[in-house]
Simulated scan of single mutants.
Amino acid sequence: MLCGKALLDTHTKVNKEDKDGVGDICIWGRNIFMGYLNNKEGTKDKIDSLGWMHTGDLGFLDDNNFLYIMGNVHDIITLSSGEKINPSPIEEWVRTLIPIVHYAVLVGQYEPYLCALLTLKCQVNEETGEPQDALTNEAVAFCRQLKSHSTRLSDIINNQDPIVTKFISEAINTINREATSESTKIVKWVILDTDFSISAGELGATMKLKRGVVAKMYQPEIEKFYKDD
């Protein structure tokens, strides 16, 4: 996500860059907060001795000093090999190549490889905010392009629609062919039987994904990925 350039008399830098130039985003200037009230330890964790605020976001600066945010340090997945994976760019690539996917969540903390939980774009109850079984008009239209007659999530889950299953599988294969390493490939995936929502707890008030909550709620699905290894 492109954020732009630093404001006048403020500074932005990226620490601990990986081979792709992505690292921890730090900012400095009068635009940042002075610290947590009566909380020296909390302030010390957030702002270093030189006044740099460690945002917790991951990103990079291009040749023109435009800042791009690529994820958050708290989202990093550490595989059993010790390799650390930033899931955000991969998840964005999944959503781009598979237009009917609403949320893609990579999992694999302390496991040997990555897997993906997928939700499809479903209609929402306007009164309760709960996702419905019916797919959105956009998703139905895309299914029609594939020559699929599915109109509901229940038509697709558990591999009930071979056309949609094949399309998703081929898209994941495309992503894997372009992966930067074996560790960043998606080995297994599953379509969940509901989309995420605020009311169910997977999303926060600003629609931000709660990865920890998702991991707990869908622990059986995650364990199934690895139980036969």
Results as ranks from 00 to 15, higher is better:
Leu58Cys: 05
Gly59Arg: 03
Gly59Tyr: 11
Gly59Phe: 02
Phe60Arg: 02
Asp62His: 02
Asp62Ser: 06
Asp63Val: 14
Asn64Glu: 14
Asn65Glu: 04
Leu67Arg: 09
Ile69Trp: 01
Ile69Gln: 04
Ile69Pro: 10
Met70Asn: 00
Met70Ser: 00
Gly71Gln: 06
Gly71Phe: 13
Val73Ala: 09
Val73Gln: 00
Val73Pro: 03
His74Met: 10
His74Arg: 09
Asp75Leu: 10
Asp75Met: 08
Ile76Tyr: 05
Ile76Thr: 01
Ile76Ala: 03
Ile77Lys: 11
Ser80Cys: 04
Ser80Thr: 06
Ser80Gly: 04
Ser81Ile: 02
Lys84Asn: 10
Ile85Gly: 07
Ser88Trp: 00
Pro89Trp: 00
Ile90Ala: 01
Glu92Asp: 15
Val94Cys: 15
Val94Ala: 01
Arg95Ala: 08
Leu97Pro: 09
Leu97Cys: 03
Pro99Ala: 13
Pro99Asn: 11
Val101Ala: 07
Val101Gly: 11
Tyr103Val: 07
Ala104Asp: 00
Ala104Phe: 04
Val107Glu: 08
Gly108Leu: 09
Gly108Thr: 08
Pro112Cys: 10
Pro112His: 06
Tyr113Asn: 15
Leu114Ser: 13
Leu114Trp: 07
Cys115Lys: 12
Ala116Gly: 14
Ala116Cys: 15
Leu117Val: 13
Leu117Ser: 13
Leu118Met: 11
Thr119Gln: 13
Thr119Glu: 13
Leu120Val: 07
Leu120Ser: 01
Lys121Phe: 14
Cys122Lys: 00
Gly129Met: 15
Pro131Cys: 12
Gln132Glu: 15
Gln132His: 12
Asp133Arg: 05
Asp133His: 11
Ala134Gly: 13
Ala134Val: 14
Thr136Glu: 05
Glu138Thr: 14
Glu138Tyr: 09
Ala139Thr: 06
Ala139Phe: 06
Phe142Thr: 06
Cys143Glu: 04
Arg144Ile: 11
Arg144Pro: 10
Gln145Phe: 05
Leu146Thr: 01
Lys147Cys: 06
His149Ala: 11
Ser150Glu: 07
Arg152Asp: 05
Arg152Asn: 15
Leu153Ile: 12
Ser154Pro: 11
Ile157Met: 08
Asn158Asp: 12
Asn159Lys: 14
Asp161Lys: 09
Pro162Arg: 02
Pro162Asp: 03
Val164Thr: 11
Phe167Leu: 02
Phe167His: 13
Ser169Met: 06
Glu170Ser: 10
Ala171Cys: 11
Asn176Phe: 03
Asn176Pro: 03
Asn176Gly: 14
Glu178Ser: 08
Glu178Ala: 15
Ala179Thr: 08
Ala179Asn: 07
Ala179Arg: 04
Thr180Val: 12
Thr180Trp: 01
Thr180Asp: 09
Thr180Ala: 03
Ser181Leu: 04
Ser181Asn: 05
Ser181Ala: 12
Glu182Pro: 02
